[in-house]
Design a protein around this nucleic acid. Structure first.
Lengths: 149, 149
DNA sequence: TTAATTCTTCAAGTATACTTTAAGGCAATA
DNA sequence: TATTGCCTTAAAGTATACTTGAAGAATTAA
């Protein structure tokens, strides 16, 4: 193995990600592997954690763009420390808290609201739950509990 | 207005949906407008509620396929009653309760887990919170950390 | 009646998050 | 050395949930 580091295949094994997904994540700026003299990707061991973070964030419903933003909070030159990770995880925590609050509010309004006969959905709390759940743009929108099957 | 009923444009105004979206929803079997002799769509007033329900479900993260499933619980021949709506809304309630519980569990594990260096993501609650999104792969997955530091 | 507006279908485009395929180069092993 | 297997890029395909555009028919307003 030339130039040391982990190959994309090895990273794939460790993380469970398809190599195609990892290449896509690089394209999207979520990982920055270096290259061998021959042009093959080589990853740092810390990239495993980085990609794991990406997977978790995906599971939490974050978009690639959002994850990229969050990962900007990590240092570039050195391997991120536990404190680095803890710092950026706070954003997740805030987001989760917000979502939970939102969902609880929705749940509490559900029975009274569905089928209530509101003529204007603009006045209905269920119609536009304070942004955040519904993604911008198109594409599949499933939240944590829903796998597309 | 021929053959009575609401036109797609009027339904769009009432619900805030684009007419293209409404046509798409018909194609997907979420609404079933009748047609005038000339072939134009005409909607029942109860379709406003039906489409509002679709929008709410969308906001809650349900897919079109799931919404179609739920809507099957409504009567075909007559206008759904309040009781009909209440009945199918229960599914939403259950789903919301489940998601809230899941998210709370995630939130509580977040600080301790991100960057913790877990050796196996199989043991990590953040990795597969809703189980089923990520496919099972071969071999051990050492996520959120490489080998012991 | 004429003109403006709304309706129709169908095909293609958009965005996200990837996977698949093709054609070929690099690396480890027998 | 040869062969196997993993690596490369680029383009195209997939799924969801729609929107946009074209061309023409139906409906409404003046």
């Amino acid at each position: 193995m030339k130039n040391r580091g982990l190959t994309i295949g090895q990273i794939g094994e460790r993380t469970g990600l398809a190599t195609s997904a990892i290449r896509y994540y690089e394209e999207e700026g979520l990982v920055h592997p270096f290259r061998t003299d021959a042009g093959q990707r080589r990853f740092d061991r810390s990239d495993i954690r980085r990609l794991s973070f990406v997977m978790i964030a995906q599971n939490l419903g974050f978009t690639i763009a959002q994850i990229r933003e969050v990962l900007r909070g990590l240092p570039e030159g050195r391997t991120p420390s536990k404190a680095d990770w803890a710092r950026i995880s706070k954003r997740f925590r805030r987001d989760l808290d917000q979502r939970i609050t939102q969902m609880e509010a929705l749940r509490d309004k559900l029975d009274g609201c569905i089928g209530c006969g509101c003529l204007s959905m603009k006045a209905c709390a269920l119609y536009n739950p304070a942004d955040g759940i519904r993604r911008k743009g198109t594409g599949p929108r499933y939240l944590m509990g829903d796998s597309p099957d």
